[in-house]
Design a binder for these strands. Sequence first.
DNA 1: CTTCTAATTGTTATCGATGTCAATTGTAAT
DNA 2: ATTACAATTGACATCGATAACAATTAGAAG
Lengths: 346, 346
Amino acid sequence: MKYITLMNDRSDVKTDKRARSTVRDVATLAGVSEISVSRVMRNAPNISDKLRDKVMEAANALSYTPNRVAGALKNQSSNLVAVVLPSMSNEVFSSVLDGIESVLNDQGLHAVLGLSEYDADRELRVIRELLSWSPMGIILTGLHHRDPIPGMIAQLDIPVVQIMDIEGAPIGSAVGISHSAAAVTAADHLYDKGYRKIGYIGAWSERPERSRARRLAFEARLEERGALLVASLIAEERSSAMVGARATETLRRQHPDIDCIFFANDDLALGGLFHALSAGIDVPGELGLLGFNGIEIGKATPIPLSSIETPRFEMGREAAKLLLSSKDDGNRVMDLSFKISDGKTV
Amino acid sequence: MKYITLMNDRSDVKTDKRARSTVRDVATLAGVSEISVSRVMRNAPNISDKLRDKVMEAANALSYTPNRVAGALKNQSSNLVAVVLPSMSNEVFSSVLDGIESVLNDQGLHAVLGLSEYDADRELRVIRELLSWSPMGIILTGLHHRDPIPGMIAQLDIPVVQIMDIEGAPIGSAVGISHSAAAVTAADHLYDKGYRKIGYIGAWSERPERSRARRLAFEARLEERGALLVASLIAEERSSAMVGARATETLRRQHPDIDCIFFANDDLALGGLFHALSAGIDVPGELGLLGFNGIEIGKATPIPLSSIETPRFEMGREAAKLLLSSKDDGNRVMDLSFKISDGKTV
DNA sequence: CTTCTAATTGTTATCGATGTCAATTGTAAT
DNA sequence: ATTACAATTGACATCGATAACAATTAGAAG
C-alpha cells in the first residue's frame, strides 16, 4: 500500500473573497496566532489590551463571525437548546416557546425545534435528531417518554427540563402545574358555587393525556363532594371554539339537566360561551361555564370567561432558566401555581 | 522553539461506556473502515449488502447516532433552517412556524429559531448568530433588512425566503400577500356595503410596519372611492381583544358618526365585536366591523367576524417548500391569495 | 543586574464525519 | 488463464475552533 501524501498548501488563503473568513484569516491579518483570535472572540481571561485591539480590528475588517459548528465539535456542546413540543397550533405551546425564547435569546442561545405531533415514535425520532446537534440542554413536554429516550439523554449528560406536568417521575427537572390539583380546584369551585349537575367537554380524543388525567381527577373530586359528573363529551376534532360551541349544544340536548360545564381548554369554553350567547342561555344562571388556561381573549368577552389560569409563558421562562442554572442546581421540581380567573361565567 | 509531539494513543477507544459512540467505534466493531460506516449511514451508492449488514449490525449494537455537528463542519452545511420571526406572542407567527415545521420535520430538518422583537439591531444579532450554524437555508420575516444582512447571507450562498410581504425587493424568494391589495379589497368591500364614515384601529405603534402600509393604502383607496377615513386610533399597547374593545369605545366616543371600523388584526376586531355586543350596538347595522387575518375563533362568535383571511399556515408551508426546492428554482415571488371571510359583522 | 514568578502568547493535536483519490476485489470477455 | 474494466472498499487530509501544554515576556524582588 502506498499513498501519496498531499501537502496542505494554504498559500491560497483568502484569495476567494466570497468564502467566509476564519480564525486563520484573522490571525494572519492581525499577525497573531489562531488561538489568540479564538481567545479574544470568546473573551477568555488574560488577554492584553494590545492583543485584543489587534485582533478586533482584523476581525472587523474581515467581518469575521466564529463558526459555531466547529466550536461545538471541539467542545462537545453548543449554544443550542433542543425544544420538543407536541404541536405549534395551540396557543399553549406558542406561549411556552415564547417564554423559553425570552430567556434564551438574551443569552445568545437558540432553540432548535422539534414537534412530536403527540406521536411517541415521532417524538423519539425528533429527539434523536436534535440530540445529534450536541445541544447544551433539552426541554421536553410532559413526563412520559419512550424507553430509549431517558438513556439517550443521560449519555450526553446534558440538563433536561420537562414542562407542563409535575406529577410523576421526571428525568431531570420539571416545571409545571399539578393538573390533579387544578381539577380539584375546579370541582370545588363549581360545587361551592352551587352547581350539582356538571358536564365535561374535551376534544381531539384527549390529547395530550394530561387532559384525561385532569378529567378523571375532576370526576373523582365531584363524587367525593357528592355532586355528579352527568356526562363527558370528548369530540374527535382538534379543539376550537366552533367545536366547543357544537359540543355544548349537543351535550345540552342529550342532558338537559346539566347546569354547568367544565372544558378541557378555553377554545372550547369560548365556543360554549358563544353558543350560550347566541341561544339566549343565561350564563351563569342557567348554565355555568369554566374553561382551562385563561387565555387573553376570554377576558374581553361580553361575559368574561371564568377559567383556571395557567402560567404558560412563565413555564417556558422558568424551564429555560432552570436549564441554564442546572449545573449547580441539580434536578428540581418547580410547581407553578394556577388560579381561578375572575370571570363571570360561573 | 522545541515542542514535544504527543502521539495520539487511541488504545482507550470505547473504554468509557458513557461516551457516545462514533464512526470509529462502529468501524472497529464491524471490522471495516470509518468511511464505510459513514457511507452506509448516509445511504451512499455502491455499497454491497454484506458491508451494509455488518455496519448496521454494529451500529445498532452500539446504538450509534451520527454526530451532525461534525458532518456539518465537513460539509459546510447542515440540516438546520434558520427561522427569524418578530415575535412568538402572536398567533400569526405561531401559525407560520407551524407551517414551516410541517414541511421541515418530515424531511428530518429542523428550525433554529430567532426572535427579533421588531428590533433591527436585535434582528441583525440574531441572524448573525443563526448563520454561524451553517444552516442550509434561512427564512426571514418581511422584506426590509439592515445593511450587512443581505451580504452576510450572500456570502454563505444559501437560499433565503422572505415571508409575509411581497411588495418590494426580496433578497431571495418571497412568499406572502400584497398588503396594499388587501387594503384595497377591504376598502372596496366596506364602500360597496354602503359604509361612508369609516374608522381604523391599530395597536402597538403599528409594529410591524406592514400594518402601517396597509392602513395608508386603505385610506388612499377610500379617498379614491369618495368615502372618508374619519379617524385612525393606534393604541400603544400590544394588540389584544381588551385593547380592541377599549379602542372601539374610545373611537366611537370621539367620533360618534363612524359607521364602520377596519382593524389591524382580528384580536382587536374581536374586542370591538365584544364591546358592541355588551353595549347593545347593532352589528352590522349601526356599526360594521372588519378584521384582518381570519383567525379561527372569529368563526364561532355569536355574530361571525368578517375579516380578510390570510393564509398564515400556508405561508410557512410554501416558504419551507420553496427553500427546499430553491436549488433548481432560483428566486421566486409567490403571491398567496387572501379572501374576505363570510362573516356577518359588515 | 540577576532571579524568579506571574501574565501572556504560541504550537500541536483533537473533536467526528466525509471528500478525494488510491487500492483492491469482482466480473466478463478474450 | 489473462486482460480490461467496473464495482467496492480504504487511507489520508480536511472542515474551523479550541484544550492542553510549552514557551516567552513582563514585572517584582533581591
